[in-house]
C-alpha cells in the first residue's frame, strides 16, 4: 500500500505541476518579472532614446521635492475619500431599500448592475455630453430650477467633486449589492429578539444591524479603495488631468510622465509609490476587518 502511494506520488506531483506550469510561466513572465523590472527601473534614469544610467534613489529624492507629485497625492486622496464616503453611505441606504423590498425582479437587478458593468470610458463619454457647460442637460435642469449653472468638469474647483459624483453614480449600486449580501447573511433571530423587546427601527439599525454589517462594509471599502486609489479611465477620457492639473491623480501623473514625457525611470518611481500606497491601504483595512469580525 505504502509502496504504491510512494510510486504514485512522483507522477502525481509531476502531473499537477505540469497542469499549473503554463499559468506559472505566464505569471513569472508577465506579472512577477515586470513587477521587479519596474522597481529596478525606478532606480534608473532612462533617456527617450533608451539609454539607461543608474540613478540610485535619485528618482525618489526628486519625487519628494516635486510639487506635481504632492498635487497628485492631494488629488488622489481628495477623490478617494469623497467618493468612498458617498458610495458607502448611499450604498448602505440603497441596500436597506433593496433588502426591505424582499422580492427583487431580475430586471431591477439588471438595471442596478448596468452602471458598473459598462466600460468607464463609455460612462465618461456619456457624462461629457450631459455635463457640457453650455448645451448639457445637467445645466439645463439646474437653471430651470433657478440654480446657477456649473462648469462641472471644466471648473478647476469643481472637477474632483464632479468626478466623484460620476464614480458614485457608477459604483454605488455595486456597494449596495455587496452590503445587501451582508444583510441577507445576518441571522434573522437578532431582529426578532430586538423587535420583541420593542426597540425602534433606528435603534435596531444603529445598535444591531450596523455593527453586524461592519465586516461587510470593510470588505466593500477594500474593494472600492483598490479602484479609487488607481482612478484612471474616467479622468483620462474626460479631462486628461485638467483643468490646470486639478484632476491629475498620482496614477494620471505617473502615466503622463511615462508615456507623454517618456521619463520611464521617474514614472516607475511614481508607480512603485502608488502601489505601496494601494497595498498598504489594503493591509491596514484587512487588519481592521479582523478587529470588527464577529
Amino acid at each position: 500500500m505504502s509502496a504504491s502511494t510512494t510510486t504514485q506520488k512522483g507522477p502525481l506531483a509531476a502531473q499537477l505541476a505540469a497542469l499549473s506550469m503554463p499559468a506559472v510561466l505566464f505569471t513569472v513572465a508577465m506579472i512577477a518579472f515586470p513587477f521587479c523590472y519596474t522597481i529596478w527601473l525606478s532606480f534608473q534614469s532612462i533617456s527617450p532614446t533608451g539609454m539607461t544610467r543608474f540613478e540610485g534613489v535619485g528618482n525618489y529624492v526628486r519625487m519628494v521635492g516635486d510639487d506635481q507629485f504632492w498635487n497628485g497625492i492631494y488629488v488622489t486622496a481628495y477623490l478617494y475619500l469623497l467618493s468612498l464616503f458617498l458610495q458607502l453611505v448611499l450604498g448602505t441606504a440603497l441596500a436597506l431599500l433593496l433588502f426591505r423590498a424582499k422580492k427583487l425582479p431580475g430586471i431591477i437587478r439588471s438595471l442596478f448592475i448596468s452602471p458598473f458593468m459598462m466600460p468607464p470610458v463609455v460612462a465618461g463619454m456619456m457624462w461629457l455630453v450631459i455635463l457640457d457647460p453650455s448645451l448639457g442637460a445637467a445645466n439645463y435642469i439646474l437653471t430651470s430650477l433657478g440654480l446657477p449653472p456649473s462648469a462641472w468638469l471644466a471648473s478647476p474647483g469643481f472637477v474632483v467633486p464632479t468626478l466623484a459624483l460620476i464614480d458614485t453614480w457608477q459604483w454605488t449600486p455595486y456597494v449596495a449589492l455587496i452590503v445587501l449580501g451582508g444583510l441577507q447573511s445576518l441571522p434573522p433571530s437578532v431582529y426578532e429578539a430586538a423587535e420583541i423587546d420593542g426597540a425602534s427601527r433606528f435603534r435596531i439599525f444603529y445598535r444591531i444591524t450596523l455593527p453586524l454589517l461592519l465586516p461587510t462594509l470593510v470588505t466593500a471599502t477594500v474593494l472600492r479603495s483598490v479602484d479609487l486609489l488607481r482612478f484612471f479611465d474616467l479622468i483620462y477620457i474626460t479631462t486628461q488631468g485638467g483643468p490646470a492639473n486639478a484632476s491629475t491623480t498620482l496614477n494620471i501623473y505617473g502615466f503622463r510622465t511615462g508615456f507623454e514625457f517618456f521619463q520611464l525611470g521617474y514614472a516607475s518611481a511614481l508607480m512603485v509609490t502608488l502601489s505601496v500606497i494601494v497595498l498598504g491601504t489594503v493591509l491596514v483595512l484587512n487588519r481592521l476587518r479582523n478587529t470588527v469580525a464577529w
Binding site: F33, P34, F35, T38, G258, L274, V282
Partner: peptide, 10 residues
C-alpha cells in the same frame, strides 16, 4: 491590486 501603469512601463 497593482495599478496597470506599473506593468505597462516595463
Amino acid at each position: 491590486m497593482a495599478p496597470g501603469t506599473l506593468f505597462l512601463l516595463p
